[in-house]
Design a protein around this nucleic acid. Sequence first.
DNA 1: TCGCTTGTACGATATTATTCGAACAATAGC
DNA 2: GCTATTGTTCGAATAATATCGTACAAGCGA
Lengths: 100, 100
Amino acid sequence: MRSYKHPAIEDVRPEDFFHALSDPVRLEIVRHLAREQEASCATLDGGRPKSSMSHHFRVLREAGLVYTKPAGVTHMNSLRREELERRFPGLLDAVLAAIG
Amino acid sequence: MRSYKHPAIEDVRPEDFFHALSDPVRLEIVRHLAREQEASCATLDGGRPKSSMSHHFRVLREAGLVYTKPAGVTHMNSLRREELERRFPGLLDAVLAAIG
DNA sequence: TCGCTTGTACGATATTATTCGAACAATAGC
DNA sequence: GCTATTGTTCGAATAATATCGTACAAGCGA
């Protein structure tokens, strides 16, 4: 599994950010990560196949929302809170409040 | 032209809101409406065909972002600022700041 | 009423997303 | 090295969106 290509936060376009949030499955992931700080991919599937989850995590990564780092055999995911706050001040907090 | 079906603000789902913001053309519209208070559809086409613009305005309307009222032969559009503030506190402001 | 303007509705096409199975890669532990 | 675990990647099918031409509806003014 190895390392991922996370975009530089400055390169994240607003439309990509919003697109990442336009799917209920991904909102669920973001909601979970907001509470739990970090989580592996497997703990977040709602019975969905691995390949589907992998897809959603990729979208979130490429939109700059989620940082994924290898941790042994699993992958730990977390929100890029500080960086997003720099890039879009107040936005992530408002999003998290909106999605509960 | 006549009246439109705007959703009740309580019925607007976050994913619909974000999906509406996931397109560059619609972001342009929102940006413009943030500055100008209100505008007709025609003043916002960037040379794009009317039917394309109509589609985008519809998406924005159905996501609860834009209110459209007939004004003679044209349609005046405006952001549903107060209502959105009630529904998603702080979100629209953060979005407008993010998209410049 | 006729003509002009603004935007919607419909329909077709093209592009993009989502979903998921199956095969593969990387790591940990034995 | 072998095996089990965790995700990724690929490919294909399906679904959802975007784009735009054409036809239509509604209001305004002469």
